[in-house]
């Protein structure tokens, strides 16, 4: 049967985008170790409400590690201590009785805090808007099996497409760079036959939009380490390659690869 834990939480509280933030300390007592990390916060919140104190706002939705809504720094690590795991899938059995846990929102210039642990990640949508798609108007598609795609290619596109857009890569990066997120989408589309027509345009537009919001990549590799889907840092090399090609060879104007 499950153990219970008594913990001390030190949590970033901030009443609004323009308010000053501060750390507050809360006890979390009698937490069952079968609970998820977010269920632990639920329990604390119910107690806060009981005491008439404002509950902690934290981002979450699916609680299955797929929607990319959740995200917080736990003891300085994006999504906490378990590798390849979004915080909603982290369980209290990974902690010990008596632990002190520091919880902060994603820290990045591009992700301003809205309240407590909730941040604005809309720059990620802007990067997609800039070119993270194939122009495929509804109703114009050929039969899906007309273009066979080697399994290896489809699998590798899927490895990149698995990104959940949580922003942990940015939060973990000392430069708050957006390369891993951008590279994952660029590789997903640029590696597939369907993505070829817009390949270099896509790389160029997405990278240039990314640079408006995010810092530059200096290959620390913290991004892949923190990624709950363990998206490979190798994709960044592919991104750089396609971006360079689009610039140097002016492939964009030439159209096709």
């Amino acid at each position: 049967m499950s153990r219970t834990l008594n913990l001390e939480l030190k949590i970033w509280r901030q009443d609004g985008p323009d308010a000053d933030g501060r750390f507050e300390v809360y006890p979390a007592l009698g937490i069952p170790d079968d609970a998820s990390f977010l269920e632990m916060l639920d329990i604390v919140n119910e107690e806060l409400i009981e005491e008439g104190r404002a509950p902690i706002e934290f981002p979450h939705d699916c609680r299955e590690g797929i929607c990319g809504t959740c995200g917080m720094m736990i003891n300085g690590k994006a999504h906490g201590p378990e590798k390849g795991t979004a915080v909603c899938q982290l369980h209290m059995r990974k902690f010990n009785d008596g632990d002190a846990i520091v919880i902060e929102p994603w820290r990045a210039r591009a992700f301003p805090v809205l309240r407590d642990l909730v941040v604005d990640r809309s720059p990620l949508d802007s990067i997609i808007e800039a070119g993270g798609y194939v122009t495929a108007p509804t109703g114009t598609a050929a039969d899906a099996n007309d273009t066979p795609i080697p399994k290896e290619v489809a699998d590798s596109a899927m490895d990149a497409a698995a990104c959940i857009g949580c922003g942990a890569c940015v939060a973990a990066c000392p430069n708050s760079a957006g390369q891993l997120f951008t590279a994952a989408k660029v590789w997903h589309l640029n590696s597939l036959p369907q993505g070829q027509a817009e390949r270099y345009r896509r790389a160029e537009n997405m990278v240039e939009t990314m640079e408006q919001f995010f810092g530059s990549c200096t290959n620390h590799g913290e991004c892949s380490e923190a990624c709950p889907k363990e998206i490979s840092q190798d994709f960044i090399a592919y991104l750089n390659r396609d971006y360079m090609k689009s610039k140097i060879k002016n492939r964009r104007l030439a159209g096709q690869s």
């Binding site: 798609y133 114009t140 899906a144 066979p148 489809a154 699998d155 596109a157 589309l189 597939l192």
Partner: peptide
């Protein structure tokens, strides 16, 4: 057809078909 044209990486066989 539509999803494939958009680049949805559906699972494939070794022969490259869906």
């Amino acid at each position: 057809d539509q999803a494939t044209a958009q680049g949805v990486p559906f699972a494939r066989e070794y022969g490259g078909l869906l």
